[in-house]
């Protein structure tokens, strides 16, 4: 009986600690600025959706959302195709001088280097190419980051698939690439999905490079656009909290939908 009480106590404490801050965000987003700063109510007494409407009519959140979706989609899709092929080559072929293993190790090392290290040169590169404040500049950057991750993750998934199946397909007349495309790739679909999910999460949430590489609603992503709402002195809490909800909603919804696949990516494969 005692341990049951303790369980309920710990459970409710954890739930409260995780959910109360989120409750406050949502609740603030439904209040008017007057109610927020002057009345300090614990829940919205006069709930309103004005803050959300204002985000889309006055603050161009439609553009931010579009930019985020386009940039995330293309950088994850390209990285997935290029990454899966690269991972397959590393997992299956033995090249002269163990080249494939060196490439794999090299990509893993790049993955460990914190992205901030190349912030300045990437900025200078995009400046030179005229790709600042454009979809293409962001897509190129994110694709490269995603590739290092995709190769590393997909490689372990491909290794788990027995070679015999491909051999059988080739005996039946498939080419080497045909065997990969028709046999291995479908078998690796769950791994591919897990990889894509994690890449989407990281790409959609990225802020540092979006901050440096974009400046106008032409290319600003959601996190970047949200950050522009934060004033130096006066803070528009109502818009900011609504922006927080809009910014977090798609990705939280997505994460809860696919949570089974998420843990491996999040833990960087520390435990299988």
């Amino acid at each position: 009986m005692n341990s049951r009480l303790a369980r309920i106590g710990v459970m409710s404490a954890v739930l409260a600690i995780v959910l109360l801050p989120i409750y406050w965000l949502v609740s603030t987003s439904l209040k008017s600025n007057r109610e927020i700063t002057q009345e300090g109510t614990l829940y919205p007494h006069l709930p309103t959706l004005d803050n959300y409407i204002r985000l889309f009519t006055e603050k161009q959140f439609g553009a931010y959302l579009t930019n985020s979706l386009v940039v995330t989609f293309f950088s994850v899709a390209i990285a997935l195709v290029a990454g899966a092929m690269g991972a397959y080559a590393i997992a299956r072929f033995r090249l002269p001088f163990a080249m494939e293993r060196k490439v794999g190790l090299f990509l893993l090392t790049l993955r460990i280097v914190p992205p901030v290290v190349i912030l300045i040169p990437v900025y200078l590169l995009m400046l030179k190419l005229g790709l600042l404040d454009s979809w293409l500049g962001l897509i190129a950057t994110y694709t490269a980051f995603n590739i290092t991750f995709c190769v590393w993750m997909m490689e372990s998934f491909f290794r788990e698939i027995p070679v015999d199946l491909e051999e059988a397909a080739m005996v039946d007349g498939d080419s080497r690439f045909g065997a990969f495309r028709r046999i291995t790739l479908p078998l690796a679909a769950p791994g591919l999905a897990a990889t894509a999910i994690f890449a989407v999460l990281v790409t959609f949430n990225e802020f540092l490079f979006a901050l440096a590489l974009t400046a106008t609603p032409r290319a600003m992503t959601m996190p970047r656009g949200t950050a522009t709402l934060i004033g130096r002195i006066d803070t528009d809490w109502a818009s900011m909290s609504a922006a927080g909800v809009i910014g977090a909603l798609p990705i939280v919804f997505f994460a809860l939908l696919v949570q089974r696949h998420l843990v491996r990516g999040l833990t960087m494969g520390a435990v299988k």
């Binding site: 739930l15 801050p21 989120i22 965000l25 949430n205 959601m222 927080g244 977090a248």
Partner: peptide, 19 residues
């Protein structure tokens, strides 16, 4: 529930704590 904090956009986490 515990998945939520780590998947929310870090910028939004910061907004949550400013609030």
């Amino acid at each position: 529930i515990l998945i939520i904090p780590m998947v929310i956009t870090p910028v939004v986490v910061a907004i949550v704590f400013r609030l």
